[in-house]
């Protein structure tokens, strides 16, 4: 689609290890519309973080091998753009990143103010404003005012005092609020939030999700929200993509996703959520080793519906508006 903000097409990424090449992403495709909050859910090791990092171009250089595919953003393929251009024009500017653990994302020996000033020195949207050209001091002052305003927007008390503090002096929830402010300050079009609430307590998680959702809606920023927590995905996402062992298996709008899961894996994942009605139901078996993954649909060794045809990877099939599934034996009946 022309209107998509970013399109990942058939992306293949492998990691070199002592035991061989681990095929971590096996032909993943997905696209995000402007202003959309997209959930990327799956269990650990399914490739969520690798996909996020591939989009940002921050895969570990010595071990990651991009074996094919495209990441189309703003009319170019980010995989072919030179690293310098990517760092200058895209990363942190058009595509920002919110890490999982806000406590390790800050440098402990500089104040928060210094670190935000450094960010604004390189990534401030005012750099593009011709009225500040050649007048760095005026720009810095304008930037500082914007920073303080943003710290208020993310509901941090007493922003001026906070700028003089060191990262260890503020709580985990506040650090994550700072991260959100820092990701949004350069006015990006896409924010990649990699499990932003996993390290937080439920009450703080609820506050942070509320904040992130509100700000993204207000500013029309698209968010790629990776999580293993289906509850958190339900909270803020418009559409959800499910990944299993490096393949995307289903993509659906949030209501469809929870009411009519069509891929057997999605179904089992939803069933394994602890609830009073269903009791405890796991998924038998373990996720496959990515060095020698099963051919075709990688879920087939654990799938009850698997047949010989599952040795070939199914093509995506549209089963509803915005709802596509990659399964030869998709579910067609749904509990009321």
């Amino acid at each position: 689609m022309e209107s998509d903000l970013i399109t990942v097409r058939d992306l293949r990424v492998a990691f070199a290890s002592d035991a061989g090449l681990a095929k971590v992403l096996d032909g993943v495709s997905c696209s995000i519309r402007p202003g959309e909050i997209r959930g990327l859910v799956g269990e650990s090791g399914c490739g969520k973080t690798t996909l996020a990092r591939a989009i940002l171009g921050i895969l570990p250089q010595n071990s990651a091998r991009i074996q094919g595919g495209q990441v189309l953003f703003g009319g170019r393929d980010l995989l072919t753009v030179a690293e310098g251009t990517l760092a200058r024009e895209v990363r942190g500017r058009e595509i920002a990143y919110i890490p999982q653990d806000p406590s390790t994302a800050f440098n402990p020996v500089f104040t928060i103010g210094t670190q935000i000033a450094d960010l604004m020195h390189w990534k401030s949207p005012l750099l593009r404003d011709p009225s500040f050209k050649g007048n760095a001091r005026a720009r810095r002052e304008a930037d500082l005012a914007r920073v303080v305003e943003w710290l208020r927007l993310v509901q941090l008390p007493n922003p001026e005092a906070l700028l003089r503090k060191y990262p260890h002096e503020v709580s985990g929830g506040q650090r994550q609020r700072l991260m959100i402010a820092m990701a949004l300050l350069p006015e990006p079009k896409l924010v990649i939030a990699d499990e932003p609430t996993t390290a937080l307590d439920v009450t703080v998680q609820a506050q942070i999700l509320k904040l992130l959702k509100g700000l993204a809606r207000e500013r029309n920023v698209a968010v790629l929200f990776t999580t293993h927590d289906l509850g958190a995905a339900y909270e803020i996402c418009d559409r959800i993509t499910v990944m299993y062992a490096g393949q995307e298996v289903e993509e659906a709008p949030v209501a469809e996703f929870f009411n009519r899961p069509s891929h057997p894996y999605t179904r089992k994942l939803l069933d394994s959520l602890p609830s009073a009605e269903t009791g405890l139901r796991g998924i038998p078996g373990e996720i496959p080793r990515l060095i020698d993954p099963p051919p075709g649909c990688r879920f087939n060794p654990r799938c009850e519906r698997a047949t010989a045809i599952c040795q070939q990877r199914p093509a995506p099939e549209q089963v509803g508006p915005g709802h596509s599934v990659r399964c030869h034996h998709r579910l067609t009946e749904f509990a009321a």
């Binding site: 709580s171 929830g173 506040q174 439920v202 009450t203 703080v204 998680q205 609820a206 506050q207 999700l209 509320k210 959702k213 927590d229 289906l230 509850g231 958190a232 339900y234 909270e235 803020i236 929870f258 939803l270 959520l273």
Partner: peptide, 24 residues
């Protein structure tokens, strides 16, 4: 009460719309 209200409930009202507890 706040702790229970903060757990996302799939299919129910969204916590991000209803949750009120402030601060840490």
């Amino acid at each position: 009460q706040s702790l229970l209200a903060a757990i996302p409930k799939i299919g129910g009202a969204r916590v991000t719309d209803t949750f009120a507890l402030e601060g840490e």
